[in-house]
Simulated scan of single mutants.
Amino acid sequence: MPELPTRRSLRIRFVPVAAVVFCVVAAGGAAAWFLLGADQKTGTCEALLKDEHVRSALGSSYKADMSCSELGEAVKKAAVGVQPGQHSLQQAQVMKTVVMAVDESLEKTSGHIDAALRVPFAESLADYAADTASTIGLGDRDYVRNGSPSKPAWKDDEGVHMAVPRYTLLRVARALSEDSTAYVTLRGATTHHAAEVLTAVPRRATGVDLTVPPMLNSHVFGAFDAFATAVRRDLGKERAAEWDRKVFEEATARQSVPPPYAKDPVGHLVASWQQTLREGGLENSADVLEQQNAVMVDIWGKATGLGDKVRDSLHDDALNDTSAARGNALRNLS
């Protein structure tokens, strides 16, 4: 296997995902569906409000008697910048602090996050899609080095970044995924970032310059497939079917004609993928989701004029790599 590049060496530019997140939230509506019930508490918010690190990170936005939804909004205010995907060092540090605190709380809540916190927290985390992809994927060197709880957010010539231990993010994202809207919010942001990764590949690229970016995406999507598998397993047949229905409806709620690749390459890949998922139908949605990276690679390969043999090879690699990553993430979560 070739040495993995750092995020800096890939030179990927983050494109705003606000429209994706907005559509997901709109589809879920104000009364988003929560698996444990909108009023049920597990103790996450109580733990966060007592955490001195969280209190310090939120600053003037902190109030000891905040509700879970108010806490979620306070985190968004403190961690999300004016420009989607663009953060100050302070904002990125807030995000890291809260992710670490949520993970710590999972030990006391049997792995659950308070229902009212899931969606606003997922919206905050979705704004860090480039960071989360680098963390739960194959292990970008910069993110591994800076993932320790004692390491602060950092800045380089690509911008500001935050990292947490991979297992921490896997557990937190898995817990958020119990809520269909939170899951689609995170996966939608990941889809947008994956499209950026593919469209950043230079024309006429060969060798590792061509094969590594799709492989990186496979390992991220494999983790999200693992979250879905774990949620379905824990819910049981009937509730899992309802979760799948909600995910499908919310993920396909935004219907748009894919723009030409030459005009909007990222938009073309994202809209074409959504169209494929929609056309597959609810009954096939779980299987189609597990083929997402292969589908996106196919769309990208055709749009950029890759030959049939190359596209077929990349397609097969995407399926195999995603499946392996799913299994790896499930083992880490068990």
Rank of each mutant, 00 (worst) to 15 (best):
D157W: 08
R171K: 14
Y143S: 06
R174V: 05
K155Y: 05
P152N: 08
H161R: 08
G147Q: 12
A153P: 11
S148W: 05
M162Y: 01
T135Q: 10
V144W: 09
A163Y: 01
Y167P: 00
E178F: 15
S134L: 06
P149G: 09
G159D: 09
D131E: 09
D179F: 06
P152K: 10
H161I: 01
S134K: 13
A129L: 12
Y128A: 12
D140N: 06
G139R: 14
A153V: 03
G137P: 06
E158G: 09
L169D: 11
A173E: 14
M162H: 03
T168G: 09
E123F: 01
D157G: 00
H161M: 04
R145E: 08
S124P: 09
R166Q: 05
R141T: 12
G147Y: 11
L170W: 15
S124M: 12
E123L: 09
S148K: 14
S124K: 06
L169E: 11
D179E: 15
Y143W: 10
K151L: 01
A133H: 14
R171I: 00
Y167Q: 03
L170S: 09
D127G: 13
L138K: 12
V160C: 10
S150M: 07
L125Q: 06
S148P: 11
R166H: 03
T168Q: 10
N146D: 01
N146Y: 05
D157A: 10
L169V: 04
I136Y: 04
A129H: 15
V172N: 14
A163K: 08
V164I: 08
M162A: 05
A173H: 15
G159P: 12
E158R: 11
D131A: 10
E123P: 00
